[in-house]
Simulated scan of single mutants.
Amino acid sequence: MAFGKISHGLGQTIGALGISAVAALTAVVPAFAQDAPAAPSAIATGAAQGAAMASGAGSYTPMKPVEGIGMPIDGAYGLQTQFSKTGEYGEWIHNIILMPIITAICVLVLILLAVIAVRFNRRRNPVASKTSHNTILEVVWTLVPVLILIGIAVPSIDLIAKQYKPAPEGALTIKVTGNQWFWTYGYPDNGDFEVISNMLNVPGAPTINNGVREVGSKPWDGPSHLEVDNRMVVPVGEPIRLQITAADVIHSFAVPSLWFKLDAVPGRINEKVLVVEKPGVYYGQCSELCGAKHGYMPIAVEALPRDKYNAWVLTHAGAEIDTGKKKPAAAAAVPAPAADASEAAPAADATAEAE
């Protein structure tokens, strides 16, 4: 009993000392914080966020998709309507160059087969021809396919070059990571926050993602199996550097209406530029067989005007308004001025000794 009383007394004494120490630190820290100068980056960030908030930023309501735009349509055939420059170019190559050539070749082969079947069957020609060589015919059927392939190759190579043209300096960077079985989108140019994107559950079907609501429960929801709880939001009309990787197995980030498809490989970053021409919601899916729930990791890209994009950014903790533009190298290389001559002299001496 005596030991218990002694221990209880010591505990009360230590607790009182701890409370006194905390109270002293609480009084000292605010005073120190008031005396310490704020970091320039914090000032700039605060000013940018203040300006954005003054213009009504910081609030966000997801955009409602337009039926048939940026999504598959029942009974449709052909390519989805394109909303990027590379997509429009690729669609032109497909519709104006490839399809007419393919159609002409198929019709020609069908005509030749019909002529051969009618004119050179056993009944019409009981004695078969012994011809084994025809120089003109052989030259023609060799050169014509070569010319056709060249005609297809020139615009096709140009399209490949356009698709993999590097992003301009200062382009907004978004990091896309494929996981089993969802996507994460990181925004290093906007405070380095991350968005986790899961497919919404389908009413009446088995639950795919616990804790995620059902599709159709919000007025801005798109089609089932394509809508997600958190979309990848991008600014419209700007080049966006997408850096794509995976955390586990190979995935593939693909959005048909934006003419975008790039593999997500673990341990590797693949990069490609995305430019969305018009505001809207554009859907895609993982296009690489990645496991049991491969069909349950859709992609939803929401393109917003820059002011609305900034407002969406500010809804995330620690977010910053930053277009991703870097400071010029010349400005970054200018050294900070020394406080006085006594501080500058040792630095000059150290430089001389190093030389």
Score class of each variant (00 low, 15 high):
Phe3Ile: 05
Ile6Gln: 08
Gly9Cys: 03
Leu10Val: 12
Gly11Phe: 07
Ile14Ser: 11
Gly15Asn: 08
Gly15Lys: 14
Gly15Ile: 11
Gly18Tyr: 05
Ala23Pro: 00
Thr26His: 07
Ala27Trp: 09
Val28Glu: 08
Val29His: 04
Pro30Gly: 05
Asp35Phe: 10
Ala36Trp: 06
Pro37Phe: 01
Ala38Met: 09
Ala44Tyr: 10
Gly56His: 06
Gly56Val: 10
Tyr60Thr: 09
Pro65Trp: 00
Ile69Asp: 03
Pro72Asn: 08
Ala76Leu: 05
Ala76Thr: 07
Leu79Ala: 14
Glu88Ala: 07
Asn95Val: 11
Pro100Ser: 04
Ile101Val: 15
Ile102Ala: 15
Ala104Arg: 01
Val107Arg: 01
Val109Ser: 07
Ile111Val: 15
Ala114Leu: 14
Ser129His: 07
Ser129Lys: 08
Lys130Asp: 12
Lys130Ser: 14
Asn134Gly: 02
Val139Trp: 12
Val139Phe: 10
Trp141Thr: 13
Val146Trp: 07
Leu147Ile: 11
Ile148Pro: 01
Ile148Cys: 11
Ala153Met: 12
Asp158Cys: 09
Leu159Gly: 02
Ile160Ser: 10
Ile160Ala: 11
Ala161Pro: 00
Lys162Glu: 10
Lys162Asn: 13
Pro168Gly: 12
Thr173Leu: 05
Ile174Leu: 04
Thr177Pro: 00
Asn179Asp: 07
Gln180Tyr: 00
Trp181Pro: 02
Trp181Ala: 06
Tyr185Cys: 02
Pro188Lys: 01
Ile196Asn: 08
Ile196Glu: 05
Thr207Trp: 00
Asn210Ile: 02
Val212Gln: 09
Arg213Trp: 03
Arg213Ala: 07
Glu214Thr: 09
Val215His: 00
Lys218Asn: 12
Lys218Thr: 04
Trp220Leu: 02
Trp220Ala: 09
Gly222Ser: 04
Pro223Glu: 02
Leu226His: 08
Glu227Thr: 13
Val228Leu: 03
Asn230Tyr: 04
Met232Cys: 15
Val234His: 04
Glu238Val: 12
Glu238Asn: 06
Leu242Arg: 01
Gln243Arg: 14
Phe253Trp: 14
Ala254Asn: 13
Pro256Arg: 10
Pro256Lys: 11
Phe260Trp: 01
Ala264His: 05
Val265Gly: 01
Pro266Ala: 06
Ile269Ala: 01
Lys272Pro: 01
Lys272Ala: 11
Val273Asp: 05
Tyr282Ile: 09
Tyr283Ile: 02
Gly284Gln: 10
Cys286Ala: 06
Glu288Leu: 03
Gly291Asp: 05
Lys293Gly: 12
Ala300Phe: 01
Arg306Glu: 05
Asp307Ala: 15
Lys308Trp: 02
Tyr309Leu: 07
Asn310Cys: 06
Asn310Asp: 14
Ala311Tyr: 02
Ala311Lys: 06
Ala319Asn: 04
Ala319Arg: 04
Ile321Thr: 05
Lys325Thr: 14
Lys327Pro: 07
Pro328Arg: 13
Ala333Lys: 15
Val334His: 04
Ala336Arg: 12
Ala338Phe: 13
Ala344Ile: 01
Ala345Arg: 15
Pro346Val: 12
Ala348Cys: 05
Ala348Trp: 07
Thr351Ser: 14
Glu355Ser: 15
Glu355Phe: 11
